[in-house]
Amino acid sequence: MKNILVIGSVGQIGSELTLELRKRYGNGNVVAGYRSTLPTGELLESGPAEVVDATNAQQIADVVKKYKIDTIYNLAAILSAVGESKPQVAWNIGIGGLMNCLEVAREYGCAVSTPSSIGAFGGGTPLDNTPQDTIMRPQTMYGVSKVAGELLSDYYFKRFGVDTRSVRYPGIISNVTLPGGGTTDYAVEIYYEAIKHKKFTCPLGAGTFLDMMYMPDAIEAAIDLMEADPSKLKHRNSFNVTAMSFDPEIIAAEIKKHIPGFEMTYNVDPMKQAIANSWPNSMDDSAARHEWGWNPKWNLRAMTEDMLKVIGEKHAKGLI
C-alpha cells in the first residue's frame, strides 16, 4: 500500500487529486499537505493533514518520516499570469520547492510527481500538433520554472535514481475549486458567469486556440503515470497530455446550446493574450498514449453538460 504526500492539497488540482488518491489507496495513506489555508470539509475530515510548505525542506522531511511516505505529488506553484507580477516568488516556489522535494525524495527513497505545463513552450515552438520533444523557450517565469523543473527532475532520475515522472498539463477546467491566476482560467470562469449572469467578458481574443482538459482526466493522468510500468517509459519529464482544443467562440457556442440567451463580449488582457499566443494551439500526446496508455474520457460537449449541471446546482443552493 502506498503512503502519499500531496503538497498543495488545497489548490485547484490538489483538492480533487487528494480525495481521489484517498479513494484508491485509503484515507489514512494520503496526507494533505497545506501551507497556510487549512483544508476544509471532506478534504480535512477524510484523512490526515499537515503543514507542509514546499519551500521548507525540513517540514517535507518531517512529514515523510512521520507517515513513511513513498510518493510525493508536488503541486505547489504560482500560475502564469500571477507569476509575472511575482517572478521571484514564482521561481522560489516552483524551483526551490521542487529542489526540496527531490532532495527529501533522494534521502528517503520517494517517487516524485511534479506537473509541468503547456507554459513550458514558447517562441519557436510549433503551435499546431506540438511535438513531445521540441524547442522550449518560454516567455514567462512560470514557463521558465516549468522547463527548469523538467530538467531538474530528469537530472535527479539519471544522477540519483529518484523515480520522477510528470505530465505537461494544458488548461485545467474544474467545477470544484476556482483557479488562481492562470492564462487559461477564462475557460472555467465562462461557465460560472454563464450560470450566474448569462454573459461573460473574455480576456482572450477570438481565434485564440488552447489545449484544455477536464479535471477528471487531469487526475487520471497524474495517477496513471505514477502507476505505469517504468520499463516502458522512454520519457519521464514531461509527457504532453491533452483532451481537447478550442477558442473562446467554440466554447461559447457550446454553452449557448444549453443557455440560448448567453452572450460573450471581449476585453482582451494584453499580458494574458501575449502569453496565450506563445502557447500551443494543440499538442501531440502520442508519446503518453504509447508509453503508458493515456486516453482522455471527456470532450467539450460532455464537459460542458457536466460543468453547467454542477455549477447550476451550486447556484440554486446559494453556494456561489
Rank of each mutant, 00 (worst) to 15 (best):
T177L: 15
Q12H: 14
L19Q: 08
L75N: 04
A316V: 00
K314V: 00
L75F: 01
A61T: 06
D53I: 01
W279L: 15
L102V: 00
F160S: 09
N100M: 14
E263M: 11
R22D: 08
E291I: 00
R35F: 11
M141Q: 10
K309G: 07
T114F: 03
N267A: 15
I223C: 03
L151P: 09
E103I: 10
A288S: 14
G181F: 08
T201H: 10
T201A: 06
P260K: 09
P260V: 05
G161Q: 05
P87W: 02
T183R: 10
K317I: 01
G96D: 11
N56F: 06
E263N: 14
S117W: 04
Y34R: 00
P260N: 11
T18M: 02
V6D: 00
L225F: 03
M226N: 08
I173R: 05
S15D: 08
S85F: 08
I118K: 06
T71A: 12
I320L: 14
R236T: 00
N74E: 05
A77F: 09
T130P: 01
N27P: 14
E20I: 02
E20K: 12
N3S: 15
T37M: 13
W294I: 07
A187S: 15
D163V: 03
V64E: 05
L19G: 10
G318I: 13
A77C: 09
L19H: 03
R168N: 13
V51E: 15
K68H: 14
Y155H: 12
G94I: 03
N3D: 04
L5D: 08
K272P: 13
G83M: 04
T114R: 06
E249I: 09
S166G: 10
T208Q: 14
K199G: 00
N267W: 09
S145A: 15
E249K: 15
E291A: 11
P280C: 13
V52A: 04
T177M: 14
G161P: 04
A77I: 04
Y266A: 09
Y108A: 08
V147M: 00
G182D: 07
L19P: 12
R24E: 03
